[in-house]
Design a protein around this nucleic acid. Structure first.
Lengths: 111, 111
DNA sequence: TCCAATAGTTCAAGACTATCGAACTATTGA
DNA sequence: TCAATAGTTCGATAGTCTTGAACTATTGGA
C-alpha cells in the first residue's frame, strides 16, 4: 500500500479551499460528474478524456485537500466520491448551488 | 478621463469567472464588504488595509472582469458596487449562498 | 512465483500568473 | 498652476500549474 490518502476532517474544511477547487473548470466538471453518479468513480472515469495522468492526479489531490471528495484504493484503481453530506453540514447548500449554477450555464451558455 | 472601465454584459458572465474571482480571500472579503454596505465604496474602503495599491487595483480588475462589480469614477475616486441583481438573474442564489457560507465560516472557523 | 498490464503518484522543468514598488494618469481644491 | 488624492500601468521577481518521464501499487495469468 502506498501512502494512504489524507482527507481533512470536515470541521477543518474552508470555504476558500472549496471555491479555489471549484474555480477550475476541470475540477468543477469532475465534481459534477461525481454528483450525478450514484456510486464512486475511478479517476479516469471522472476526469475528462485525454488529460495527462499527472494533471489528473494533481486535480484529484486538490479536490481531496479541499475536502470535496474522498478517495479510496479499490484493487488496482482509486474510487472517488463526493463528501456531499459532510460538506452540507458545514456549508449548507453551497455545493448544490454551485452545481445548479453550472447546469444553468449549460442550458444558457455565455453569449 | 482615462480609459473607462469595461463591464461585461451579464449574459457573457461565466460561473468559472465568478468562482475564480471569489476563490481569492481578498476578493471574497471585498465582495462581502460591498454586499453589506447600502451604497458603493471606493477601492481603499472596500479593500483590506495596508495592501499595495497596485495589488488592490489588480483585484478590482478581476472582480470587474468576472462581472461581479461595477466601477465608476466619481470625482477623484472610483466607486465600486456589487452587480447583485444582474448576477441573480443569471445565477440565482449563487453569490448570496457563497456570502452566507463565508459568514458561517466566520461564526464557526476552521478547527 | 514471476511477469505484464493497469491505475495512479511523484518528480523536475518550462510556462504561466500573482505580487509589489516605481512611475504614470486623472480629478479636485487651493 | 500646483499639490494632494485615488487609482492604473509597467516590469521584475516569486510562486503555481501543466506535463512527460520515471516510479509504486495491485491484480490476473502463465
Amino acid at each position: 500500500m502506498q501512502r494512504p490518502f489524507v482527507h481533512p476532517p470536515i470541521e477543518t474544511v474552508t470555504l476558500e479551499g472549496i471555491l479555489y477547487a471549484l474555480a477550475d473548470p476541470v475540477r468543477l466538471e469532475i465534481v459534477r460528474k461525481l454528483g450525478r453518479g450514484t456510486c464512486g468513480m475511478n479517476c479516469q472515469t471522472a476526469a475528462p478524456e485525454k488529460m495527462p495522468k499527472s494533471t489528473q492526479s494533481h486535480h484529484f489531490q486538490i479536490l481531496r485537500e479541499a475536502g470535496l471528495i474522498r478517495s479510496e484504493r479499490r484493487g488496482v484503481e482509486v474510487v472517488n466520491s463526493l463528501r456531499c453530506d459532510e460538506i452540507a453540514t458545514r456549508f449548507p447548500g453551497l455545493v448544490p448551488t454551485i452545481i445548479r449554477a453550472a447546469s444553468e450555464q449549460d442550458s444558457n451558455p455565455a453569449a
